[in-house]
Simulated assay, not measured.
Amino acid sequence: MDQAVLPLTPTEEERSLAAIVPPPTADAYWLTPYGVPGAGSTNTTYIAGHSREGRASPFNNISSLAKPGDRLTVTTAEGPLDYTVDRITTENKDTLKDSAIWDKVPGRLILITCFTEDLWGKNIIVQASPVPAN
């Protein structure tokens, strides 16, 4: 997967409910009020995108393609950053706001998308940690 990522600033209501819905495009979105990837990160970096059956979407099939131990690379203006996938989980949308994914963890990367078999009820969450620099 090679996906461009655009900035997105959720509303206060979306943030308080953890009900962040990216625009209905084939793009992925970095949630700007949270972490920034790279050195000096003070929070988790979140990237959200849609999954859809029968249509191109940024995170289609991510739950079947990503596995713990896989490497992800995020390219920033400062260069590429490598992450290792720690785990892939399914979260209910109605309880997502209380999930540990919102805990402040500097350097962590979270990818959030809909579960194509239950678009309105569940999200797929990919959690990854930065690969230590040599």
Rank of each mutant, 00 (worst) to 15 (best):
M1T: 10
M1Y: 04
D2A: 13
A4M: 13
S16P: 02
S16F: 06
L17Q: 13
A19G: 09
A19W: 13
I20V: 15
I20Q: 10
P22Y: 04
P22G: 12
P23C: 10
P23G: 13
P23W: 09
D27L: 04
D27F: 06
W30D: 11
W30S: 04
L31D: 03
P33M: 13
P33N: 15
Y34P: 03
V36N: 14
S41A: 15
N43F: 04
T45F: 02
Y46C: 03
Y46L: 13
G49V: 08
R52T: 03
N61A: 15
N61V: 09
I62M: 12
I62L: 14
S64I: 13
K67H: 15
P68Q: 05
G69R: 05
R71Q: 12
V74P: 00
T76I: 11
P80R: 14
D82Q: 14
Y83V: 14
V85A: 03
D86G: 11
D86Q: 12
T90L: 14
T90C: 00
N92T: 12
N92V: 04
N92F: 07
L96A: 09
S99P: 01
D103I: 00
K104Y: 03
P106V: 13
L111I: 11
L111T: 10
C114W: 02
T116H: 00
T116S: 10
E117M: 02
L119K: 08
L119E: 06
G121Q: 06
N123L: 00
A128R: 01
P130N: 08
A133N: 11
N134K: 02
